[in-house]
Simulated assay, not measured.
Amino acid sequence: MGLLDFLKTKKNTAHIAKERLRIIVAQERSGRGAPDYLPLLQRELLEVIRKYVSIDADAVKVDLAKDGDHDVLDISVALPDERPTSP
């Protein structure tokens, strides 16, 4: 019975590895379709916003989503809670 248990474990491990590989391949395929300009757009937006408000690099997120036949550019900016005091 020990040999059968060993072989069953291999099958479960192989199945888990196969599922993980599917996930990795799906992520790679989705990443290839993304435009090359998104990282540059994110950096430029960050530079412009920093002219007016002090924010971290993590505060600006740029993503491209699919909505039916259309591509939707999703831009999210997390602004700080601080408000400048008036003189």
Results as ranks from 00 to 15, higher is better:
I49D: 00
V72D: 03
R29T: 04
L21D: 11
L38K: 01
E47R: 12
K66Y: 09
R50C: 02
L41P: 01
V53A: 05
H70C: 07
Y52E: 05
I49Q: 01
Q42A: 11
L45Q: 01
G33E: 13
L40G: 03
Y37D: 03
G68R: 06
D36W: 09
I24T: 11
D69V: 03
A14M: 05
K66Q: 15
Q42P: 01
V72W: 04
D63Q: 07
L64N: 03
V48Q: 01
E47N: 13
H15S: 02
E28G: 04
E47G: 03
Y52H: 08
I75F: 09
Q42I: 02
R50L: 04
L38Q: 04
L73M: 06
V62R: 02
Y52P: 01
I23E: 14
G68K: 02
Y52S: 06
A17C: 05
I16E: 15
H15G: 07
E19I: 09
E28I: 13
D71P: 00
L73E: 13
D63V: 07
L45A: 00
S76F: 09
R29Q: 15
S54K: 10
L64T: 03
P39K: 13
K61N: 10
V48E: 11
A17V: 08
G31P: 00
E28F: 10
V62S: 09
R20L: 06
S30R: 10
S76R: 15
L64R: 06
D74M: 11
A14H: 08
I55A: 00
E19K: 12
V53G: 02
I16C: 04
A17Y: 05
E28H: 07
E47D: 13
A57L: 07
L21S: 03
L21V: 04
V48P: 00
D56Q: 06
Y52N: 02
Q42L: 08
A34F: 06
V25H: 10
R50D: 01
L45E: 01
I24E: 14
R43H: 10
E19D: 10
I75E: 02
K51R: 14
A14V: 07
L64D: 08
G68A: 13
L45T: 06
L45N: 00
S54Q: 06
Q27E: 15
V25A: 05
R43L: 09
